[in-house]
């Protein structure tokens, strides 16, 4: 009898490290044990606990889409003990992964609808999984619009993918940086995400909005969406409360009676309106 339980991570090999910005990295991870990899499935929106053995675990969403099989990716900002250690790792090294945890973006329910993605800063990763997921199933959805903002041009993550989306005729990308954050050759918008969204004024009819970003961006974006006619149950976001276990036991992530790790991380604005302000 052994502890083959929820706390035992999969061993993952780092196959690729991408430096998104000076302090943001994307790791591509493959299962060290291929059999484990073949048995692994997840859906977009879910997250995991990533460990650097000896340093501990930290929580990020799976930033790659389930449509790309054979690997998962995570993107993180170097901020604390574990992310600092993760950022020092190179391709070929081993980390741990537990997951997938949490609920999902209901992309099946979004079929035949237009999709509006709004992301700020380091919150693009959870959105990137769902964006690629729907782009890989492009014919099931109508218009796809992505509004992405960062403080400065240097802070924009996934730059090559932004360029790819920019070029695609079936995607409308609006990238923006905060005033003062532009470079001389910046061709995108200059302004905060809510203001840029307001100006863009996307249609709300048959459209689902997905918003991920820092609390202040979310706070000012919801009213804009409401003005544009988005019903609260048509606006999705992910909550990022602090977690340790990821499986509803450690007592950390709850927002009222809701476990972000079990009932989330994906919530609609309608749900958030019913929940206490503990996020």
């Amino acid at each position: 009898m052994t502890t083959a339980d929820v706390f035992k991570p999969f061993l993952m090999r780092i196959d690729k490290v991408t430096e998104e910005t000076p302090d943001v990295r994307t790791l591509r991870l493959a299962f060290q044990d291929e059999r484990e990899g073949r048995g692994f499935t997840f859906r977009t929106g879910q997250f995991g606990e990533y460990s650097v053995f000896g340093e501990g675990e930290c929580t990020f969403c799976i930033a790659s889409p389930p449509t790309r099989q054979g690997y998962i990716e995570c993107t993180f900002r170097k901020a604390g003990r574990v992310t600092g250690a993760l950022a020092d790792l190179e391709a070929g090294e081993t980390i741990g992964f537990r997951g997938p945890y949490g609920n999902v973006f209901p992309i099946d329910e979004w079929e035949k609808k237009s999709l509006l993605f709004i992301a700020g800063g380091i919150a693009l990763p959870p959105m990137r999984s769902v964006i690629w997921n729907v782009l890989d199933l492009r014919d099931r959805y109508r218009d796809i619009t992505i509004v992405y903002g960062a403080r400065t041009v240097a802070d924009l993550v996934y730059k090559s993918e932004l360029a790819e989306w920019e070029k695609r005729p079936d995607v409308r990308l609006v990238a923006t940086v905060d005033p003062g954050g532009q470079t001389p050759d910046w061709k995108g918008e200059i302004g905060f995400v809510p203001a840029v969204l307001d100006k863009l004024a996307p249609a709300s009819r048959d459209t689902v909005a997905v918003v991920c970003g820092p609390p202040v961006m979310i706070k000012f974006t919801f009213p804009v969406l409401a003005r544009l006619g988005f019903a609260p149950e048509k606006i999705f976001t992910t909550l990022e409360n602090r977690m340790k276990c990821g499986v509803g036991k450690c007592g950390r992530c709850n927002v009222g009676k809701h476990f972000v790790c079990k009932d989330g991380p994906v919530f609609t604005f309608a749900q958030l309106q019913e929940m206490p302000q503990e996020y």
């Binding site: 706390f7 460990s51 053995f53 000896g54 340093e55 501990g56 675990e57 340790k244 276990c245 036991k249 450690c250 007592g251 950390r252």
Partner: peptide, 11 residues
Amino acid sequence: CACFDIQDENG
């Protein structure tokens, strides 16, 4: 009460 933390130490 059962809130817990997870910590790595000495392997």
